[in-house]
Design a protein around this nucleic acid. Structure first.
Lengths: 239, 239
DNA sequence: CTGGATCCATGATGATACTG
DNA sequence: CAGTATCATCATGGATCCAG
């Protein structure tokens, strides 16, 4: 049986919250469920190195904590897991972690590391919103990975992303999640060299705009990492 | 030696953040350091059931991650630990957890559980700010525990708390952290019965105001827990 | 006394295989 | 697809001890 009992013995909202979602995989499960409901095997894939037993334990624990709901209807093979209202309210936690991670924990992807297109897009959207570039106007980009495509939209105020190929995009970006991951985490000099792993098409001025925002050409952008340029200096990460 | 390697093998800001601060004690160490710099033994006390080895490992790991700094000056016995700028930026994470914990994880303190006055006050301040009660005007309360006193101030816009007995308080509240912890986590009916474990003094109208805000008398306040009344319904917690 | 280090026990997690 | 079963490993807790 399960032990499922992280205990701090503190009367403290933070400690009590962490007793619910402070163990190794819980917050990543919440991260994935915030996107959309998922099946057991979906989660196995997106979490990568979790074991079936580990996932089962986490799901049961999150269920008793009132954070997720198990939706199994008879006559259907699948079991869908989704967030309860209380679980959805973990969004600010995930958001704060995403923010901090972007600013202080990013580095190029390591060999064998899962590079999930959806997670890439979520980080990209947030980066664009925080940097709030002033553009000529509403903009639509189509980010096309081999496995999936995403539409990145700027409505004149903020950026959002949705799945699927963009209609009438201003710029089409064709690349792989791995290439984009690397580009967005290295300094300008190396970034400029990696530009060849991206193919851009669209009106020349719009392509220029894209290139300027991401510092994809030498001589213009500041020499700093994309993610870390959100506010202050880059942080090294040495594990 | 240490293993210090939580690894998810995800290229994902959230996962990478959690590799830095996702283990059992790290975020509680950050919680305490956000308040003020602490010595090894201060942390041993405030964390309670951590072992010296465990604390040493966490501190070293947080140091290499660039989240805390070790300040040992020769000629001085103590070693002070404090947050780096990157560490201080974990405030939104702690804040989001505090918020979620207040709304979804609170229950009366259990026997043997540490009830830290400072943490009580932090939760109280946040609760007051979120509920934004309209008061007659600026207000100052003196919360006096046996071990320590705190000043709770409302400037007409928001609430803040500082250490020390309040000058010219509108209301003086004398109680224990344990009593207050229990009062703030039970329903109105029981709360009303616990009122005798608090002693209030000050102008009658100001005392009335205090009583009304915290639902300390029968028949007026809604029957819900203080903390959970922040927005929606209470959540049970069954461990 | 502060700031640890050592040793051992135990509980949490990982790897692999298999099943309703 | 959604798990269970079994075994191995690793991180953490408890108790004790030590150096400046």
């Amino acid at each position: 049986m399960s032990k499922i009992a992280v205990k701090y013995h503190h009367f403290c909202p933070i400690a009590l919250a962490l007793e619910n979602i402070g163990d190794k995989w819980s917050l990543l499960i919440v991260r994935d469920l915030l996107d959309k409901p998922q099946r057991f095997t979906d989660l196995m894939v997106s979490l990568g190195k979790i074991t079936p037993r580990g996932l089962t334990l986490r799901l049961r624990e999150l269920e008793t904590a009132g954070i997720i709901e198990r939706d199994s209807q008879q006559g259907r093979r699948e079991v869908w897991y989704c967030l309860t209202p209380a679980g959805s309210e973990l969004l600010p936690v995930i958001d704060a972690l995403l923010n901090w991670g972007l600013r202080h924990a990013m580095r190029p992807p390591m060999p064998g590391e899962m590079v999930n297109p959806e997670l890439i897009m979520r980080g990209l959207t947030r980066t664009l919103n925080i940097r709030t570039k002033s553009l000529s106007g509403p903009t639509r980009w189509s980010m096309e990975f081999p496995q999936a495509a995403f539409t990145i939209s700027y409505d004149g105020k903020h950026w959002s992303t949705s799945q699927g190929t963009a209609q009438n995009p201003d710029v089409i970006i064709e690349t792989t999640p791995e290439s984009w991951a690397k580009i967005s985490t290295v300094g300008r000099t190396e970034r400029h060299q990696l530009t060849k792993s991206i193919h851009l098409s669209g009106e020349p001025e719009r392509i220029e705009e894209f290139i300027a925002i991401f510092g994809l050409r030498a001589g213009k952008a500041a020499d700093q990492k994309l993610d870390s340029s959100l506010k202050t200096k880059p942080t090294k990460n040495n594990h």
